[in-house]
Nucleic acid binder design. Structure first.
Lengths: 106, 106
DNA sequence: CTGTCATACTACGTCTGTCATAGTAACTAT
DNA sequence: ATAGTTACTATGACAGACGTAGTATGACAG
């Protein structure tokens, strides 16, 4: 299991990556992160929802309600253009960060 | 320039890497990080010294005084066996973390 | 028809690492 | 003298992650 402090700052990026594929909601995002990481990273619920709030507050995503008739109504999120730009910036930053950190890793 | 929040949790690892090469002190560590990262990452003084304190408190490094006669007396740090073990663990963690994050990066 | 499981959240408070700001201290070069 | 470089310490703020707890709805088994 990965210590979350390491991933700190990249939770938002992971969420934006998944939303770029299409609108989604909490539980699905959470499951996809778990799957894609081969169970190596499981995002905490509170971390996930606070990330949604932060991203929405910053205009990187927008929320809307689904129209499912069964089950509790979900809040869906869609990435905005600003969110896409932010995501791309984070990707560039990641490549630089990775290079720097790897100089100190054996 | 890299935002430090990204590197959060790896400052300690970088410091341990440099101390593994031999005992050193604040200013030198700071300069080496700057050099090795090609000026892409410059650790803040407060971050550096608080990392030293944390690492020493955890038994990963030990401090001792240099015997320089000119200039203010320096506090040197040496990595411990426990610190070496911790560093290696962080390296293993890094490789896993990197793989996970890269699944979400274009 | 009752309890458990899965889904889908919200609220609240704590912890930790980073950072801004400010100050102390000693030597070195102009 | 005074600026510059080295070498720190103190204090408090901030943000993201996390622990704990609670609410709400439906599906399915016994």
């Amino acid at each position: 299991m990965i210590s979350s402090d390491v991933i700190r700052g990249y939770n938002d990026t992971m969420i934006l990556y998944l939303l770029w594929e299409g609108p989604s909601y909490g539980y699905e995002i959470s499951k996809r992160i778990k799957e894609m990481s081969s169970e190596k990273y499981i995002i905490k619920e509170t971390t996930l929802y606070s990330a949604f709030n932060r991203l929405e507050k910053n205009g990187y995503i927008v929320s809307f309600y689904g129209d499912e008739t069964n089950g509790r109504r979900r809040t869906y999120y869609r990435i905005t253009e600003s969110g896409q730009a932010y995501y791309q910036e984070k990707c560039r930053e990641w490549h630089i960060t990775k290079e720097v950190i790897e100089k100190f890793i054996i």
